[in-house]
Nucleic acid binder design. Structure first.
Length: 890
RNA sequence: GGGAGUUUAGCUCAGUUGGUAGAGCGCUACCCUUACAAGGUAGAUGCCGGGGGUUCGAGCCCCUCAACUCCCACCA
């Protein structure tokens, strides 16, 4: 046995800092995070959603890690072969932007001042120096990852995975190149996906412009917010049902300034109410217009340069940004008398999530994935239960995206990322290949170049569950035990990336492996501030996990997050509340301080279960119930329930009652009883540490080290307590509940007449339950200890009640405290009357139900029995109260 | 415009298949009682958003209204 530390040597408050660093290192050095076969003979794998290499741990990540690591530790203790697999995302646009900004600040150069190769080298250098700090932060949170598995999305294997998937899909013509209207970010000079565009309301204007009609005196009044795009117009559209304009369909309109002749077409898309009901059609720079253009076979004009300025089509306005051109063009129209009206108008405009600049819809040549088939399979896999969402409602979000699939634009005009594995030769042949090509397979030309674009970050993320386990390289798959861990067990993430990520992993896994990538998805809440607002830089309401850890310790932080994690959507995190959990951690620490001096006098093995006393059976039974709830709750991701159960057990059962009830024994003389009690205290404490360990790993491992036998391993490797019918003692639980009620009642009476905590009182208990009488008599010493009772008498209700006394009536027992001094009768009468009124109200509810024929006819047997029993006990209580009141009043 | 969610104690939230409301924090009073003042004991607090319905019985099921939040779509 390790030598217990004497109480006086242990600090009165727990200080987490050194403890945390110490144990993390011991776990890692001891290879406790590595997968190991255990008694469950099953594997369990969670892959960490790879944070951005540029990232810094925020409260949401902390919740990710807490929920995942708790499960991993839980399952590891239950004997699963567990793998917690860490990773890091190259985060294309984000990282490139960071480095571009840095280079500009330092050297006043843009990336285009460098060769692609040189600039990418700069990004790698940045990554090596500054990237991935977040991994250390995950360690600080206690993440028990197998770091040998650490994978970066640009590593060799993920790159092979990306190429293999791309080439297969390309050869099946499911990846194709097409001219399509995309969100063009003029700052990044790249296409971005729909999800990377945020719509913001912007104050703009409705410009009403006069269009001439060829061969007619009539004119059209076209309303637009973007007059500068008229150089790209290839039609004017009206609604075919619009009486005002329908006679003009088929005629030719003349665009102002550039005087281009375009057809007037009829299209249902045009809203009669909106604007003037007359729409200029710019298929090259508007999503709706692009669709209209397709329906009417209109030509597409691209009138912008890649930096968002007007090109040659813009004539004299060439080179101006769209923002400037808008003003200049409208002024010009005004001069010419063509601007009929200008109304201010609020309207949503897409902005680049990363760059913050307005997105220019633009037609360009991009790569797309046809997701029709994949999305269907991904929907089916959830419908048939191969993959389950917790909470289930998130299915709808998932379905809503996958049931209306739009082809996925995967090319980005960036330099940082997986380059598209498509090659071209100087004879315009095009092919895809997983190798780096130097010769055209068709014409044998050696003038070969690779497509300069890179893939959307989510393309490699979608393959993440496979590539981190070695796919598609057979050797790597064996090394990383692909067959053991795939499909992985559960994906844990926030709801904001159900579309981005969950859906894509599902599609790509079903496509490549014919299997789901994980069998469960737990969607956790979004962490908000205490007022329920999203944490954001602009509000300055973000919580830095490291401030919290410094203040309260990692365990308290983890416990706070876990107790808020269930099936809810938000966790409103108030730092002050975390302080409450710090206090709880400290409570555990002090419970150890209590038992520490006694440890040498008892073993943690319970020698003979049949020799236990009532309170010992009771605490074991409570422990057992708690284990049951925790196991069941963890299985279904109800961390909140698990935490509530263990919190109540530690605080209310173990500390408030069991420790208190042990004091007289430990201070007593009976060595055998003492030894037995110590061994139960120790046994239960060790189990309690095990129950707590998944959520609060550090303090539990620390205390375990003081308690464990020499031949016992670290707590991280111990078995998780489970329900055991041999440890259930129902009768002891019932009796103990009654004892607690009586003690509380005595304390309540004492407080009602301001008896000093130190002063002793006599107590008389009356009940008709013979077992209870015996039981209460046997507990004299405990009444003395816990309620400062001097004399206790227990008897039948037939006996005479003491004259001058105060009384509480419980359903099973009447509690009398006789008083010698003067009693404030009024106060006592008021107290009893209040209690009587409350009891009567409850009683009447039962009576009315008993008198309700329909209830007695329809209610199920057990409910009826409950009501009959309730009616009886409450009737007796009412009687007792009334009798005692009469006595008091006289 | 389409969809989803939320509304329960002062605050943050639980509430299993309908059986008559709970926790933590906070608050009040009294206590430095030999594990812990980051503590102890006792206590107060709810028309379970409004209205209607189904039922013997509704916080829970149905209808309806209201407020708040989020997601998707959207530059006439």
């Amino acid at each position: 046995m390790t030598t217990p530390i004497a109480t006086e040597d242990i600090s009165i408050t727990y200080s987490p800092t050194e403890v945390e660093a110490k144990w993390y290192k011991k776990w890692e050095d001891g290879k406790y995070f590595k997968p190991k076969k255990g008694k469950a003979n099953k594997s369990y794998c969670i892959i960490v959603p790879p944070p951005n290499v540029t990232g810094k741990l925020h409260a949401g990540h902390a919740l990710d890690i807490t929920t995942q690591d708790s499960l991993i530790r839980f399952k590891r203790m239950k004997g699963y072969e567990t793998l917690f697999l860490p990773g890091l995302d190259h985060a294309g646009i984000s990282t490139q932007s960071v480095v571009e900004k840095m280079v500009f600040e330092q050297e006043k150069k843009t990336r285009r001042d460098f060769s692609r190769e040189d600039f990418v080298k700069k990004i790698w250098a940045w990554k090596e120096e500054y990237g991935g700090h977040i991994l250390d932060q995950q360690r600080a949170m206690g993440a028990s990852c197998d770091w040998d598995y650490l994978t970066f999305t640009l590593d060799k294997i993920p790159n092979m995975a990306v190429k293999k998937f791309f080439v297969d899909m390309y050869n099946q013509k499911l990846i194709y190149q097409s001219d399509y209207i995309v969100n063009w970010d003029p700052m990044l000079q790249s296409a971005v996906s729909d999800q990377e565009v945020n719509h913001k309301d912007v104050q703009g204007n409705f410009f009403h412009i006069k269009y001439a009609i060829k061969g007619s005196d009539e004119t059209l009044e076209v309303a637009t917010t973007r007059p500068e795009t008229l150089f790209g117009d290839t039609a004017v559209a009206v609604n075919p049902n619009d009486e005002r304009y329908k006679h003009l369909i088929g005629k030719i309109a003349i665009i102002p300034l550039c005087n281009r002749e375009v057809p007037i077409i009829g299209d249902e898309h045009v809203d009669l109410e909106k604007g003037t009901g007359c729409l200029k059609v710019t298929p090259g720079h508007d999503f709706n217009d692009f669709e209209i253009g397709k329906r009417h076979n209109l030509p597409i004009i691209n009138m912008l340069n890649i930096d968002g300025t007007l090109n040659d089509y813009g004539m004299e306005f060439k080179g101006l940004s769209t923002k400037v051109a808008r003003n200049v063009v409208s002024k010009k129209l005004e001069e010419l008398g063509l601007l009929l009206d200008k109304k201010s108008h609020m309207h949503p405009v897409g902005h680049g999530e990363r760059s913050g600049v307005p997105i220019e819809p633009m037609v360009s040549k991009q790569w797309f994935v046809n997701v029709n088939h994949m999305s269907k399979r991904a929907v089916e896999a959830v419908e048939n239960g191969d993959m389950k969402f917790y909470p289930k409602e998130w299915e709808n979000t998932y379905y809503s995206w996958l049931r209306n699939p739009k082809d996925w634009c995967i090319s980005r005009q960036l330099w940082w990322g997986h380059q598209i594995p498509v090659f071209y030769c100087d004879n315009n042949h095009q092919w895809a290949s997983e190798r780096h090509e130097t010769e055209c397979p068709i014409c044998k030309s050696t003038k070969v170049h690779q497509d300069p674009d890179v893939l959307d970050t989510w393309f490699s993320s979608g393959l993440w569950p496979m590539s981190t386990l070695g796919w598609p390289d057979p050797k790597a798959m064996e090394e990383k035990k692909f067959s053991t861990f795939f499909p992985t067990t559960v994906l844990i993430t926030g709801y904001d990336i159900i579309f981005f990520w969950v859906a894509r992993m599902m599609m790509m896994s079903l496509q490549t492996q014919n299997q789901v990538p994980f069998t469960d998805t737990y969607i956790h809440a979004i962490v908000r501030d205490k007022l329920g607002r999203k944490m954001s830089k602009s509000l300055g309401n973000g919580i830095d996990p490291f401030d919290i850890i410094a203040l309260y310790g990692t365990d308290a932080f983890r416990f706070a997050l876990a107790s808020g994690a269930g099936y809810n959507r938000n966790i409103n995190l108030d730092p002050e509340r975390i302080g409450g959990f710090r206090n709880f951690i400290n409570k555990v620490w002090n419970a150890y301080r209590f038992i520490a001096p006694h440890l040498a006098n008892g073993s943690a093995q319970i020698a003979d279960m049949s020799k236990l006393d009532h309170h010992e059976r009771w605490i074991l039974s409570e422990l057992n119930s708690t284990s049951k709830i925790m196991n069941e709750s963890m299985e279904v991701y109800r961390y909140d329930e698990a935490c509530a159960a263990v919190y109540a057990f530690v605080y209310d059962k173990y500390c408030s009652w069991f420790i208190e009830l042990s004091k007289n024994i430990l201070n007593g003389e009976d060595a055998a009883t003492k030894a037995r009690r110590i061994s139960v205290l120790k046994f239960v404490f060790k189990k309690m540490l095990a129950l707590l360990h998944p959520v609060t790993p550090f303090i539990t491992e620390e205390l375990w080290s003081y308690l464990k036998d020499a031949n016992e391993d670290l707590l991280i490797a111990q078995e998780y307590p489970e329900y055991d019918s041999k440890l259930e003692f129902k009768e002891d639980q019932d009796q103990m509940n009654k004892f607690v009620e009586v003690v509380t009642s005595i304390r309540n009476l004492r407080a009602s007449v301001n008896i000093k905590p130190k002063d002793e009182v006599s107590v008389e208990l009356f009940t008709d339950n013979q077992d209870l009488i015996k039981y209460f008599r046997a507990n004299l010493i405990n009444f003395q200890e816990l309620a400062r009772v001097k004399n206790l008498s227990v008897g039948n209700k037939e006996l005479n009640r003491p004259n001058k006394s105060i009384v509480n009536v419980l359903t099973h027992t009447e509690v009398f405290v006789p008083l010698d001094g003067v009693i404030d009768l009024k106060e006592q009468v008021a107290r009893l009357e209040k209690e009587l009124a409350k009891t009567n109200a409850d009683y009447q509810k039962y009576v009315s139900r008993m008198n309700n024929e329909n209830f007695m006819k329809n209610a199920p047997e057990n409910v009826r029995a409950e009501v009959i029993e309730g009616e009886r006990t409450l009737r007796e209580k009412v009687q007792s109260l009334e009798e005692n009141l009469i006595q008091f009043r006289s």
